[in-house]
Design a protein around this nucleic acid. Structure first.
Lengths: 116, 116
DNA sequence: GGCAATCGTTTCGCTACCGTATCATTTCGC
DNA sequence: GCGAAATGATACGGTAGCGAAACGATTGCC
């Protein structure tokens, strides 16, 4: 991957991709929710509530609420850790994968249209 | 600018930049607000409420509210159009420019750290 | 076995967003 | 001039987000 991404170009790419996301009719995630989703799918498990809270620099209820919302959307799945039943393990779903694949394609497409 | 951005790489870049934005203490804009801000600063004026509403595919109150919020943050400024006093023209501010410059630097930096 | 620590959730009061419907102001058509 | 159209703002009821605090459930420590 060879990218010489300058700030102005980065902003154009960002705007185009965000505009495509906003115009899209899919789920309307907050920035925090999307960040959590991306992290869960891109980084190897296990993912816990406290880990995500520390990573994002937010309180635990923020993560719980985000998982509630995204769980209802089918984008993530929660399970109790069998080894330590205090923990909750966040797991991926097929729908979540599809959502992020769509997002990836949007970014790539908008990048190409910018001649990026 | 030479970028061969593949979907997985795009998602990694997106996650890193969004994580940096979430962890940052600055203003916490919604996706729609950020899209509006980027558009106003990247595209030549004039920008109107109805134009932005049509662009984003949302209703006018959404734009009005977003401008209320971002106006209070000092990121944009509203003025009545002297030619047609029904229109409101959205204008840039120094603070808005600085905010987006910071965002651009974040994206570039995270891109570089990914070897992009 | 019993108490403190850990983990995720829930509750509380609050703020901000949403779409629909409506409003005041201004301009246009005739 | 005067009614219709256009523009942005506001009101309304509802939903969902926030941080702080408190809460059950579970585990670790001695």
């Amino acid at each position: 991957m060879s990218v010489h991404l300058r700030a102005s170009e980065a902003l154009y790419l960002w705007r185009s991709a965000m505009l495509a996301m906003v115009r899209n009719d899919g789920p309307d995630l907050t920035q925090r929710q999307l960040t959590i989703l991306l992290h869960v799918y891109l980084e190897p498990p296990p993912h816990t509530v406290r880990g995500l809270a520390a990573l994002l620099g937010v309180t635990k209820p923020v993560i719980t609420r985000a998982l509630d919302t995204m769980g209802a959307m089918g984008l993530v799945h929660r399970t109790r850790d069998k080894a330590d039943r205090r923990n909750v393990v966040i797991q991926r779903t097929v729908e979540g994968s599809e959502y992020l694949e769509r997002l990836g394609r949007i970014i790539v497409r908008e990048g190409e249209e910018l001649g990026v």
